[in-house]
Amino acid sequence: METSIQTGEEDRILRTWTPLILRTILILSSVILVVGVAQTIVKAPGFYVQRFRAIQQGHLHAGESLATLAAGIRHGDSHAITTIGLYVLTLVPLVRVAFTFILFLKERDFVYVTATAYVLAGLIAGMMLGRIG
């Protein structure tokens, strides 16, 4: 009985907060992406065409560090703004899983603490694996 009360409360919190997390990050990233794309149209149309043609040839200019991107944003660089928008978008799964991990930890539901910790570790391992190449 205790378990079902705990399950019901966990589910209620998850169903209330998860949509809020998803929607907030999605809206935030969409706004940043729209600003970045709009600024590209206004400020750097020629640069965009040049970069697009290079991508078609298989030449990527990605892989900037967060420090470089932050400096780019300070200077109003549209490419840096757009890239940060993409980074924010990829926070959706990370934040959502981190939230469930904290919730289950708080409720001492250790089967699900282990499951969410594994997923979180997988997401972080993916980033590290990408960095290695």
Binding site: R51, M127, G130, G133
Partner: peptide, 30 residues
Amino acid sequence: GVTAGAGALVFLARGDIAASVAAPVALGVT
């Protein structure tokens, strides 16, 4: 979302996401 997010993080960290393509595609598909 989590499955694709895991893949996207690998691509992003590897520098294989072209913002010039990914940004309009993300906005358009959504």
